[in-house]
Design a protein around this nucleic acid. Sequence first.
DNA 1: AGGGTATGGTAAT
DNA 2: TTACCCTACCCTC
Length: 260
Amino acid sequence: MPEGHTIHRLARDHLRDLRGESLTVTSPQGRAVQAATVLDGARIEAIDGYGKHLLYRWSTGDTLHVHLGLYGRFIRQRTPAEPPRGLKRLRLAGDRWTTDLSGPTACELFDPDAEERLLARLGPDPLRADADPDRFLFNLSRRRIPIGAALLDQSVIAGIGNVYRAEILHVLAIDPARPARELSEAQARAVWDTAARMLADGVRQGRIVTQAKPPGAKRLARGEALHVYRRHACATCGGPVTVGEMASRRLFSCVVCQQG
DNA sequence: AGGGTATGGTAAT
DNA sequence: TTACCCTACCCTC
């Protein structure tokens, strides 16, 4: 689920569903007791997404940091909600909606300087209006690691995960093994622009879709939405998709389209 | 019941 | 590099 598009969509949805109401905050699993105690009865005033991180700004002045990791998810239901089932780290119950968080890597209150430390190790996030593409170009220009590894490095660019990595490099016909700093400036800009466009599409659609929808089609089936990720044949040329490993994740690329 | 897998990341070695 | 953490789901036995 969670690459950058998921995070920014959650920020938007949670703001819509929960902002301004006094929330009942509980820690059903018993693993976020301190945060729940501090925040219970308070209101969410704003929510920021940075890459794959969510920052909830509360009326108490506190910031709650959530990182979903690989398995984390939010489940929404109408208030009053069923008693929590399974392992729920946090429950936010408002007048209309109740949201449960399960499986996050992080769910914690930030110290005063924790946010600064977090932002210092994140590259620019193409989904943010205040993002600076030149910082991304600069970051790429000084990395000798492959571009396929650089795109997963959150200090180079924030918000890209394993699906977007494969899809971005594919639509630009870039060999993932190519050293990041050897990309031309035009190519690096194209990577940024493509990332920004794909992520924004992901926010709108609530899932990752990188293929154009044929006229008349309602919704692309799963397996038709992507070009190479988890496919055997490339959606563009029909050629074989190879599966390798880069940055400890499975990397899919088209032998034909993405030759070095 | 148990194993493998997943769109992520950190800390120790 | 490796070990480890987090949860749900799917497959096989």
